[in-house]
């Protein structure tokens, strides 16, 4: 891992996210969102999470963009409202407050890349050290996903199945 690449990659993420938010044409916004997903998968590859990077490149940058584009081809591709009314007082109070609270919590977080951070000391060393003896798979992510937490993965497929049923029911054309 090369940690000097951190700032340029994070800036790329922020710029593509800002583009996806600020562009008026929805088609360009969706394509910029696909770029954002792809840069996100690059960042994850750089952080050492290769499996997550693959999934994001296929599902996030590929499938999500295709779903957005299919919806836009079926509906209106323009954001019709160019002048918006100013946001309400509650929004102006709540969002800066939420941001300040989140940033105030930053000093309690572990340092970036700290091997002794709380997330890395409790159970994950056990997975890393014993998974090959117990599951005979060199890739620890696969052995945790498919062996230790296979029930979790099975219920995830139930969620995807019900999402597919919901889409099919919503998009069904009524016969007249």
């Amino acid at each position: 891992m090369i940690f000097s690449l951190q700032i340029p990659l994070l800036l790329l993420l922020l710029v593509t996210a800002a583009g996806a938010i600020m562009v008026k044409d929805l088609m360009s916004a969706v394509l910029l969102l696909g770029t954002y997903s792809f840069f996100l998968s690059v960042v994850w590859g750089w952080l050492g999470a290769v499996d997550v990077a693959f999934v994001e490149a296929v599902v996030g940058a590929g499938l999500a963009t295709v779903l957005f584009l299919l919806t836009l081809f079926g509906t209106a591709p323009k954001d019709t409202r160019f002048r918006r009314p100013p946001p309400s007082l509650a929004v102006l109070i709540v969002f800066p407050l939420l941001g300040l609270l989140l940033l105030y919590a930053a000093k309690d977080l572990p340092e970036f890349g700290d091997p002794n951070s709380p997330a890395s000391v409790h159970i994950s060393p056990i997975y890393l050290e014993q998974s090959y003896q117990e599951t005979h798979t060199p890739n620890v992510v696969t052995s945790v996903l498919m062996d230790y937490r296979s029930l979790d993965t099975m219920v995830e497929t139930v969620v995807i199945f019900s999402a597919g049923i919901a889409c099919a029911l919503l998009l069904r054309r009524h016969s007249k």
Binding site: M1, L47, G48, A49, A119, S120, P138, N139
Partner: peptide, 15 residues
Amino acid sequence: LVSISAKKGATIPVL
């Protein structure tokens, strides 16, 4: 969540 999992000087979780 993924940036919590990073460790300095560590490689990908494939043995």
